[in-house]
Nucleic acid binder design. Structure first.
Lengths: 345, 345
DNA sequence: GATATTATATGAATCGATTCACCGTGTCAA
DNA sequence: TTGACACGGTGAATCGATTCATATAATATC
């Protein structure tokens, strides 16, 4: 690998001049510029990014810290982030935490040593006050939180309007004649889960339907819990007429439960899911879902982060971008119940 | 951010001694070691990884270059690679190429400038002889190819036995009574696609069924082409009794086509897919698939790469790891055809 | 007691870029 | 003619670590 010195020697100029030609920071005469460019070409010289980073104090590297890329919500987020990053000359490094706080903190420590320029993070449910996030920001490395924000943290964020998503979905179920709508929720400490439940409550209240705590079951956003809770709910008397799973994987679990009980969807029980489900428009039952703009979440977040890095944002106050989810109605909820089809308490 | 110098000053030792304490490369007396450790703690010192990389000539960073993380095959691969990487103290940077060769080459150039220690790559279909891969290896950066290998390239690889996967799947279809089995294939220049077709041919030959080129249609591994080709095939006279889609997204396209034609699967036409399909065991039709050990592909590949980096591999010759796919039989192929149900010529 | 050996510790050189104080030359106005 | 100024160009200092030749002290050997 040739160095800038060798280029300088070959072009019979100083290293400073070579640097100027490359970065374009200072004017260089036509003659020398020509010589330098030729030397670069002939030596097939590429500047060493490590050395550059050492002096210039930035690495042009971003990190994205998520729970698990295997969760179908994240690939699009990561793709969006990578597109925004590479468009601006940044690299994206990826980390899975499995929602374990100690792993998350450890990763943050590594990121500091690595002098990563900025961090995108989906904080783990139990990250409480998010001191590691605050520390990172305090040490001069901007952070953007995706999807969730640690309580009381002063940090940029890109969120989806979870309240609204759940609300329009439940409103739809009510329109279809459902009154006994059960919810398969996520961990109580997750704001995401709480907001979705909140949307559910609001939709019920609008329709004058009493809220029943017995219809809201807490899972852990994983397949197994969706499966188990759906089974429980389907065996309840009276059985709910509709199930609303608050994320994709639990929705799939619920789907499996319904099948195993030989119930049909939506005839015996309707099912709606928060989150896109892969193949939801191809397989049966075609699921009604609340679709989140996952790609946009990643893209906008990385973009916001880069704006911070390049001081394009005047305000020191946290910026919060809230994106709109979209209700996609499919077969799993489109059987209209007549009023007397509603089971009575 | 404190530097090694400040630590040295605070502990009243030389920077060399601090470095020795941290890296453990040389013996340090108990007294000084104690002082240094205390200084590190009190200053909350973390070594600067950039400076370290500049001198030590390695970055502890790996790259994974794939076509699109959004393709359901890749998240598990990436997860496996990240697990292996982080276990060994490496970071993983991710790149999407959308199978565009010029983007791939550009990324390789960036990776060289960044002094990435090693590269995992799923080469793009038209990467021909893979000169960029060869160049990278020649310049001292090891590369492991996943899933596909550029023709004639001398490079480590982790592959799945595509011939075998297709063969056992088609064998299964034949066992179920199918004789007119159509294939929705991928781009001819992709070895992956060719190998799967080869497996199909072998299974036919074993069973003494003549191969008919008309039954093998070439798609591009995307949803649309799977959809279109499946529609064509379903409208053929006589209609094939089974469809075998050679990747996941085309399989989903085929599924949609079958539904739109109001055919039922497997009664009217059976469907098997190469690749896992998300939700294949939950939704209807429950698809028979050839499941690839995607996580293991990523994990083993990163592991192999790290072994190369740490000179744990004696042989200079390329290592090739071939993993076994697994046939998962589900409802979409399990209707047994009686012999006289087989359409004739 | 002199010398060889071992164990520690030091600090300057190095990695490959950027940056900036400084210098030479030419142009222009006074 | 001279001073001011712009323009090009130079090369040493710098970033923060590692590494190695060298120095010193302590111990072992004869």
């Amino acid at each position: 690998m040739p160095t800038i010195k060798e280029v300088a020697r070959k072009a019979r100029v100083s290293v400073g001049t070579v640097s100027n030609v490359i970065s374009g920071t200072a004017a260089v005469g036509a003659e020398l510029r020509e010589r330098v460019e030729r030397a670069i070409r002939e030596l097939n010289y590429h500047p060493d990014h490590i050395a550059r980073s050492l002096k210039s104090r930035h690495t042009n590297t971003l990190a994205i810290v998520i729970s698990d890329i295997t969760n179908p919500f994240f690939p699009l987020v990561v793709r969006g982030a990578e597109d925004a990053a590479s468009k601006n000359g940044y690299l994206l490094t990826i980390f899975n935490t499995d929602d374990r706080l100690e792993r998350e903190s450890q990763i943050f420590s590594v990121l500091r040593m690595r002098r990563v320029d900025g961090v995108l993070v989906v904080v783990s449910p139990n990250s409480a006050d998010g001191t590691h996030v605050q520390d990172m920001i305090a040490s001069g490395t901007p952070v953007v939180c995706l999807d969730r924000v640690p309580l009381g943290a002063e940090v940029d964020s890109v969120l989806v309007d979870n309240v609204k998503g759940a609300r329009i979905c439940v409103r739809h179920l009510i329109t279809m004649g459902h009154r006994r709508i059960a919810v398969i929720s996520g961990p109580r400490q997750l704001q995401t889960a709480r907001n979705r439940v909140e949307g559910y409550r609001l939709a019920l209240r609008e329709a004058g339907i009493p809220y029943s705590a017995a219809l809201v079951r807490e899972g852990d956003f994983r397949f197994e819990s969706g499966y188990r809770l759906a089974k429980d709910l389907c065996l309840d008397h009276p059985r709910p007429t509709a199930l609303f799973a608050l994320n994709c994987t639990m929705g799939m679990g619920a789907c499996k439960a319904i099948q195993e009980l030989a119930l049909s969807c939506p005839e015996d029980i309707a099912l709606a899911v928060f989150d896109d489900v892969p193949g939801a428009d191809v397989f049966r039952p075609k699921l009604t879902v609340v679709s989140q703009p996952a790609y946009e979440v990643g893209y906008r977040a990385a973009d916001l982060l880069i704006q911070r890095l390049t001081n394009q944002i005047a305000s020191a106050k946290p910026v919060s971008i809230v994106l709109e989810p979209e209700l996609i109605i499919r077969e799993s909820t489109t059987l209209r119940l007549s009023v007397d089809a509603i089971p009575r308490g």
